[in-house]
C-alpha cells in the first residue's frame, strides 16, 4: 500500500484539492515495483471539518493527483543526449581520434583508437550493461482508497480565513498563516487566489475547486453533533466530572508534553 497525500485547502464556500508535492515522485517510483505492493491510498488532509467526507471527494482528488502528474516533471529522466555523453567522454574520444590519425600502417594503434571511439560502447551494448528501462507507470485510478485526515496546520489556516470579513483579506490572512507554517502547497493556492479570487477559475495545476455542499456529509455532521452535545451541555450529575482545578489546564508549552 503506497500512500499519496492530497491537500483540501479551505477557501470561501468550499475546498481546493491539490496533490502534495511528493505525489508525482511517489507515482514515478512505483514504476519498478511489483504489482502486489502498489495499491494506492490517498490521504486527504483537511482542516478538521466535522462533516468532511473523503468518499465524496474521491473523483476530484484523483483528478488533482493526475493533474499533478501531468504538470510535474517528466515521468522519468530522459537519457542523456549525445552532447552529455560527449562531455563525459571527450578525453577518451580525443585520444581515439589521435590514435587513429597517428596509426598509419600500425594496426595496434588503429585497433586501440577504434576501441575508444566505438568498440567500448558497442561491447557495453552487447553485454547489456545499461540498466533496462522500467515498465510503464503503475498509477491506476480505479482501486484508489481515500481516507480523510485532519491536519492541525490547515485548521489554523481555516481559522485565519474565517476571521476575515472579506475574501481578499481572508486569503491574505490564510496565506500569511500558511507561509508561517511552511505549508508550500497551501501557500501556492492562496497566492493564486489573491491574484484571481474566484476559486472556480483556478488553473488545474493549482488545484481543483470543490464546493462545500458536495464535500460535507450531513450524516457525519449530525453524528459529530451527537457526540459534542453532551460535552457542550453537561447535566448536573456530570458537572463535577469535567471540573478542573486552576492550574490543571493543558499547557500550551510543548516542553510540558515531552515524554
Amino acid at each position: 500500500m503506497m500512500q499519496l497525500v492530497c491537500w483540501a485547502v479551505p477557501v470561501r464556500g468550499g475546498y481546493v484539492l491539490r496533490a502534495d508535492q511528493a505525489a508525482p515522485a511517489a507515482v514515478r517510483s512505483a514504476d519498478g515495483r511489483r504489482p502486489q505492493f502498489v495499491d494506492w491510498e490517498v490521504a486527504i488532509v483537511h482542516p478538521g471539518s466535522a462533516g468532511f467526507s473523503a468518499e465524496r471527494v474521491r473523483r476530484p482528488t484523483v483528478l488533482a493527483i493526475e493533474s499533478a502528474l501531468r504538470h510535474g516533471s517528466p515521468a522519468r529522466p530522459k537519457p542523456g543526449g549525445r552532447l552529455a555523453r560527449l562531455r563525459r567522454s571527450w578525453a577518451s574520444l580525443a585520444l581515439g581520434v589521435a590514435l587513429v590519425v597517428l596509426s598509419g600502417t600500425h594496426w595496434v594503434l588503429a585497433l586501440a583508437g577504434a576501441w575508444l571511439l566505438a568498440g567500448r560502447a558497442w561491447t557495453a551494448a552487447l553485454l547489456n550493461i545499461r540498466a533496462p528501462m522500467a515498465p510503464a507507470t503503475a498509477w491506476t485510478a480505479g482501486g484508489v482508497q481515500v481516507t480523510a485526515a485532519p491536519h492541525a496546520g490547515l485548521g489554523q489556516v481555516a481559522d485565519a480565513l474565517g476571521r476575515a470579513l472579506d475574501d481578499a483579506g481572508g486569503y491574505g490572512q490564510a496565506l500569511a498563516m500558511a507561509q508561517t507554517l511552511g505549508l508550500n502547497e497551501v501557500t501556492e493556492v492562496y497566492a493564486a487566489l489573491i491574484r484571481h479570487p474566484n476559486p472556480m477559475a483556478l488553473p488545474a495545476e493549482v488545484g481543483m475547486w470543490t464546493p462545500a455542499e458536495s464535500v460535507d456529509d450531513p450524516a457525519l455532521i449530525a453524528a459529530s453533533r451527537d457526540v459534542a452535545e453532551p460535552l457542550d451541555a453537561p447535566s448536573d450529575g456530570d458537572a463535577a466530572v469535567g471540573t478542573t482545578e486552576p492550574g490543571d489546564e493543558a499547557s500550551d508549552d510543548p516542553m510540558d508534553r515531552l515524554p
Partner: peptide, 17 residues
C-alpha cells in the same frame, strides 16, 4: 495530528522509493 502524520508518511514513502 493525523494529517501531519499522513504528510510525513507520504513524503517518506516518495523519498524512500
Amino acid at each position: 495530528s493525523p494529517g501531519e502524520v499522513a504528510v510525513v508518511r507520504g513524503r517518506l514513502e516518495a523519498d524512500l522509493f
